[in-house]
Simulated scan of single mutants.
Amino acid sequence: MEKKNFWADRFEAERGRLRAVALRMLGSQSEAEDAVQEAWLRLERTGGGDIDNLGGWLTTVVGRICLDMLRARARRREDPIDGEGGEDRHAYAGAAADEQAALADSVGLALLVVLERLAPAERLAFVLHDMFDVPFEEIGRIVDRSPAAARQLASRARRRVQGLPDTLSADYERRRNVVAAFLAASRDGDFSGLLAVLDPDVVFHADADAVRLGSLAEIHGADAVATNFKGKATAARLALIDGRPGLAVILGGELRIVVRMEVEGDHIVAIESIADPARIAGFEMEYL
């Protein structure tokens, strides 16, 4: 009992900050409370014994819970700010007057409306980094990306929040052109063309589902990656995956594989092939 009270007291000390994180992520008071409560339940289940940094651990857990909730909301096409029906129609409308004022001051309805336009991963990266100073290394673990990719998510979200151009930016066009060149070279069996856009130390990874479909699990180096992709990608098409250029592989009329690419300069430094249906369902996809 004393141990449980110890963790309960430490959790209560973090509750206000966790609720603020969840509120900015979700824009809904009730959903924020649900996310924080779920974090407490997960802490209870772990017993807390192996947690060295409770604040960081709880922030990560709340972030993942909110990300799942945002992705589920996107799949249901819900809008918690101006959507139809339910308590989310106006997130703060049912709160007490003092809570309404606090929510408007700390979040701002205008900001919530803008945040609703971001992809879930962008929203998480922007909120955690720009509002709560969470390191990109930790954000990357939450969204299953590298720290550099997490930084790019936050940067893109920041431009959108500030009303600056995004998809027409020179950076976007450069990345899109690199991925398009890779796709064309792969389809044409152009080995030299593939080498031209691959970093010499490029790394390819495939998840377990992609391996079951015939992919190699891991490949290192430009020569090996180019050999693997030469003459392939006939079923692939360019796509925006969480706002970043990549490839979508359509088989039998269905999206079966998502290929994410990290581009630095004019070269691809990392490629990830994802065939796990649950992960694919969580991506924001736009075909180009």
Rank of each mutant, 00 (worst) to 15 (best):
D266W: 08
V21K: 02
R17V: 11
S192H: 09
V161N: 03
G193C: 03
E99L: 12
G56H: 04
C66R: 02
L118G: 08
A181H: 08
A150W: 04
R45V: 11
A102F: 07
V21Q: 01
F204G: 04
G56M: 04
R73L: 05
A148F: 01
G16A: 10
V161Q: 04
T46S: 15
D50K: 15
D98F: 12
R156A: 08
R71N: 05
K232Y: 07
A93W: 08
S169P: 05
I268L: 10
D199F: 03
M285E: 12
L23Q: 07
R160L: 06
I274H: 06
D105T: 13
G86N: 10
R64M: 09
T234V: 11
E78L: 13
V259K: 01
N228A: 15
I268T: 05
I219Q: 03
I51W: 08
I241G: 02
G193M: 05
L168S: 15
E87W: 14
G282W: 03
R123L: 08
R17P: 01
T167N: 06
L183N: 00
V249M: 09
E31K: 14
L153A: 00
I81E: 00
E44S: 13
A235G: 05
V113T: 13
V225D: 04
Q37A: 14
N177W: 00
A236H: 12
S155H: 04
